[in-house]
Amino acid sequence: MREYVNRHRPTIFSLVGLVIPLLLLYLHGRSPRQTTVFEAALMNVTAPVQSAASRMFGGVEGLWSGYIALVDLRAENQQLEEDARVLTSQALRAKELGLENVRLRALLEFKRSRRDLRTVAAHVIAEDVSPFARVLRIQLDVGTADGIREGMPVLAAEGLVGRVRQVSGGVAQVMLTVDARSSVNVQVAGKGVTGNLQGTGDEEAYAAQLTYLHKAEELAEGDTIVTSGHDRVFPPGIEVGYIRSLEERQRGLYYELQVVPAVNFSDLEEVLVVVGVVGDGTEAVKDGGREAAEGGATP
């Protein structure tokens, strides 16, 4: 028997080796059927290996794609940073230009509304600021060469800024209406109350006080204070401020009221210097003797 097996070993091996798969195929080729114990065992062996292989390739893929992405990331990042810098700069510039445009339009509108005034446009180039971030004095980029003289009124679109205190060839210093040394003859618009507006010189807040003799009419909070033109320095009808409160103080014959300036001195960028007044014969300002260049003058 053993001799027979030894002699026919290849044939027996072939038969067994070919019949076993056929039997398995016959068993597992039927349909429908349930998972057999062979399949379950093989799945238990292969599933963890395949899962690990899948995770490994996933990791390699992630590493590779991450690396490939990183190769160009540095240059791309630098380019994007540069782009961001340029765009941020352009956006800021556009915003500044937009704001400047709004201010200049307001200033132009004001010039159109006051064709009787001959003005020179000027940029605020410096500010004297208090420790409380309040602007005490401003400096303009116009001077005697532009026809600017001491005492000339300085206006913004919102109203009166102050007057030129010192002037040189190309620079003028402006004393604001809230300066303690500033005094402007004013009236309460539409109420026949005339008085003097004096700056408080307060370093913490922009404030001025209205001093007047008597009230022809009852005043109200928020009433507009405008220049009267009586002092022959400031042209009439320029807004100066608003009554802050009706708490008045009597000082001898005079009454005092707190006034909020019409102009926010902290935001001043462009102003108009009134170099002359034409039309109504009120020569409140001496002509600077020079036609305002740069479109500043209004005939």
């Binding site: 798969p21 398995l24 597992h28 057999t36 292969t46 395949q50």
Partner: peptide, 15 residues
């Protein structure tokens, strides 16, 4: 091969 093949019946690739 049968084990890793998801569609073939067990024994097919063996055979």
């Amino acid at each position: 091969k049968d084990a890793f093949s998801m569609t073939a019946p067990l024994g097919l690739h063996m055979e």
